[in-house]
Amino acid sequence: MIPHERSLVEKWKDRPFALIGVNSDGTDTEKGLAEFKAKAKEMGVTWRSFRNEGTDPPISETWRVRGWPTLYYIDHEGVIRHKDIRDEARMEKVLDEMITAAEEAAKKQKK
């Protein structure tokens, strides 16, 4: 999971793509944050995450998340396009299509 995500972030770093996490590791305590940072460094997690418990109620409750990990694919206009695709090849295909659409929309706007 994490190695693949890291490769996606790396691959698309110059294209309109962001991996945003909602993390449930309890980083609101000093101990939790220290453990999180050590692990993030070890695993090469460079992308940004919300603290799941940073809002009341937690983000996962508002979003009715029932299993982890849960994935939402949100396009450049903020519309949910897919959910929970976990197969790595399909993930890449779907995201690549979405990113291409985002780039085309940006080009049109410039014209």
């Binding site: 999971m1 995500e5 996606l8 309109p16 793509f17 962001a18 991996l19 945003i20 996490g21 909602v22 993390n23 449930s24 590791d25 999180f36 692990k39 695993m43 995450s49 799941n52 983000i59 996962s60 979003w63 998340v65 982890w68 990990p69 849960t70 994935l71 939402y72 694919y73 949100i74 396009d75 450049h76 995201l95 979405m98 990113i99 985002a102 940006a106």
Partner: peptide, 11 residues
């Protein structure tokens, strides 16, 4: 403006 993959996760 960007495609976002929103990932509910934890170590």
């Amino acid at each position: 403006g960007k495609v976002v993959l929103l990932d509910f996760w934890g170590f």
